[in-house]
């Protein structure tokens, strides 16, 4: 249970960092918005998978 919570915290930090970095990148280069967004979503989706794996391991 505690482990799952830790994993979720980690996942939260990870996705937060991805989102933040994507924001910075978009602010620097607004013209490549589409590409950055796609890359961001893919990375976020991959990390999210780990979070779900942890949650399902608990339940």
């Amino acid at each position: 249970m505690v482990g799952a919570g830790l994993v979720v915290i980690g996942v939260g930090i990870g996705i937060g960092k991805i989102g933040g970095s994507a924001m910075e990148a978009i602010a620097r280069q607004p013209e490549s918005y589409g590409k950055i967004q796609t890359a961001m979503l893919i990375a976020a989706a991959l990390i999210e998978g780990i979070g779900f794996a942890a949650l399902f391991a608990v339940s």
Binding site: A45, L46, E48, G49, F52, A53, L55, F56
Partner: peptide, 13 residues
């Protein structure tokens, strides 16, 4: 496999 887990887990969750 990651595709199937992601969709399933997201909707289930």
């Amino acid at each position: 496999f990651s595709l199937l887990i992601r969709l399933y887990a997201n909707m289930q969750a």
